[in-house]
Amino acid sequence: MLSMKKINKVFKTDLVETHALRDFDLQVEEGEFVAVTGPSGSGKTTFLNIAGLLEGFTQGEYTLDGVNVSRLNDNQAARIRNEKIGFIFQGFNLIPDLNLAENVEVPLRYRGFNSAERKRRVEQALEQVGLGARMKHLPSQLSGGQQQRVAIARALAGEPRFLLADEPTGNLDSLMARQVMELLEEINRNGTTIIMVTHDPELARRAQRNIQIVDGQVCDFTLYQGGDEPQAARA
């Protein structure tokens, strides 16, 4: 599903070169739920940006869903983001002037779906996250948890091959965080691959696989199989 080989990302200024990712290797299979953890500044967000084709990288090879996406132009990257990737952000990132239905509809418009198809998908996605009755509400009229559900609905509406979630519960209280996590698990059970960056070890344990990034490299894999106890671990 996702394969990164020897990915390097270097940020250069006049004085300093910073290696955000260094010989980064990762393989994610279809249907997996992978949690990515690591200390601040370790390269988690850079990894997520590269995985989501939001940023390029300096060296290496990246294959997504069987397509080499290492060197795409802007249009190609935008198209793949639109069709194959769903994004969920810590800050929800809903467009405040658009109501829920319109927010969910945004990526579908860029995809070129007709009005009837957009309507069907918007209704289905909002129903799936339990907000079917609030389509005309503005984001500001919702709680944080509800806003994150809308963001998830927006990500799901395009029926992406995988979801990238960056601290999806970071701005939520524990009850809402649990609800959002349950929703993500349900989505994953339905076959969508999920990669989630989180600082919360509790949430990370609920993923099938944990990856720890330190200094721009994958330094630890922990495999969970349905329970809380790790089944295997390797450095």
Partner: peptide, 11 residues
């Protein structure tokens, strides 16, 4: 956000 969810520069 629009760019992330699929808008091209042209759009």
């Amino acid at each position: 956000v629009r760019r992330a969810i699929g808008a091209s520069r042209r759009q």
